[in-house]
Simulated scan of single mutants.
Amino acid sequence: MRQTLDSTVNGGSGYCKYGWSKYAAPSGRCATFLEFGNIESPMYARLRHFFSTIYNRIHVKPSARPIVVALPLCHSDDTEAARASRKQYKETLYSVLFDMNVPAVCAVDQALLALYAARRTSGIVVNIGFNVTSVVPIFQGRVMREIGIETVGQGALKLTGFLKELLQRRNISFESLYTVRTIKEKICYVAADYEAELCKNTQASCEVDGEGWFTLSEERFKMAEILFQPQIGGVRAMALHKAVSLCMDHCYNYEVLRDHSWFKTVVLAGGSSCLPGLPERLEKELHKLLPPYISEGIRVLPPPFGTDTAWFGAKMIGTVSTFSDAWCINKKQFRQKSRHSGSSLVNAWR
Rank of each mutant, 00 (worst) to 15 (best):
A310K: 02
K61R: 11
K61I: 15
E91Q: 10
A70H: 03
K200I: 11
L93R: 12
R2D: 14
N56G: 14
S321D: 08
C30V: 10
R48H: 06
L198E: 04
S338C: 14
S122G: 11
T202I: 09
R145K: 07
I298N: 11
G233M: 03
F130W: 04
A239S: 12
W213L: 07
E219L: 03
P276Y: 07
S7T: 10
G141T: 01
Y194H: 12
M316N: 14
H75C: 15
C30G: 15
N253V: 06
E207G: 08
A239I: 08
K315R: 00
A224F: 15
A326P: 01
A310W: 01
T307L: 09
Y194K: 04
P302S: 14
V143P: 05
Q203W: 05
T322M: 02
S205Q: 13
V60M: 14
T179F: 07
P103A: 11
C247N: 06
P303E: 11
G161W: 04
S341K: 07
M43D: 09
R48I: 05
H75F: 15
I329R: 09
L289H: 07
F263C: 11
L301K: 11
K158N: 06
R339H: 00
E207L: 04
P72D: 13
D259H: 04
P137D: 13
D193H: 05
R299P: 07
V126R: 07
D193I: 12
Q168D: 15
G277N: 02
H241M: 08
N127D: 06
I187F: 04
V208N: 09
A204R: 05
Y116R: 04
E283M: 04
P42K: 12
W262P: 11
V105W: 02
V244N: 00
E255Q: 00
N10T: 13
V125Y: 01
I128Q: 11
F334L: 07
F36L: 08
V267W: 08
C251T: 00
E283S: 12
K200Y: 05
M1Y: 05
I294Y: 03
P66K: 02
R350G: 08
S63D: 12
F263P: 01
L268T: 02
T309W: 06
S261T: 14
E150F: 00
F228G: 09
E175M: 10
P303W: 08
T32V: 15
S295R: 12
E211F: 08
K184C: 14
S76Y: 02
K337W: 14
Y252H: 06
V320M: 03
L166V: 06
I329Q: 03
R339Q: 15
R29E: 15
E185W: 02
K186F: 00
S27H: 01
Q229N: 13
D78L: 10
L345Q: 13
D308E: 14
F214C: 15
T53I: 12
A196T: 04
L275I: 15
A269P: 01
L163A: 12
C328I: 10
T8K: 08
L112D: 03
E197L: 03
E150L: 01
R181E: 09
V208H: 03
A224E: 03
N127H: 04
I58L: 06
I39W: 11
M43I: 04
A326Q: 02
S134Y: 14
G155E: 03
H49V: 14
E211M: 09
P230D: 00
A84K: 06
L93K: 09
F36K: 12
K332G: 09
L268V: 04
A64F: 11
E207D: 03
R29W: 13
Y293L: 05
T121K: 01
L115Y: 12
S272C: 04
L345T: 13
